[in-house]
């Protein structure tokens, strides 16, 4: 089984799974925090429409975890950098 790195920790995935599928398979349902109410969010629509599952992939934010196929060594960051 291959691994991606989520917030510094390895997470196994089955080849072909999306980042969201790998997270859900590991029992995680929430990984993002909303801007206004600081509420937890994870996968909702699962097909790229709702944008609830956003993560940063290899340093680029705004990636829908439900669309991006997991690849070995991919780094996933779930927290937005609240700079300034």
């Amino acid at each position: 089984m291959s691994e991606i790195v989520v917030d510094g920790d390895p997470l196994p995935f089955v080849e072909g799974q999306t980042v969201a599928a790998a997270l859900v398979a590991a029992g995680r349902v929430a990984w993002r925090t909303t801007r206004v109410g600081r509420r937890p969010r994870g996968v909702f629509c699962g097909i790229g429409v709702c944008f609830d599952c956003l993560v940063a992939v290899d340093g680029t934010g705004g990636q829908r975890a439900c669309l991006v196929p997991a690849r070995p060594g991919m780094t996933v960051t779930t927290r937005e950098d609240d700079d300034e």
């Binding site: 801007r35 937005e80 700079d83």
Partner: peptide, 8 residues
């Protein structure tokens, strides 16, 4: 209009 971001 871009995605929402922290103030930049």
């Amino acid at each position: 209009v871009t995605e929402p971001l922290p103030p930049r």
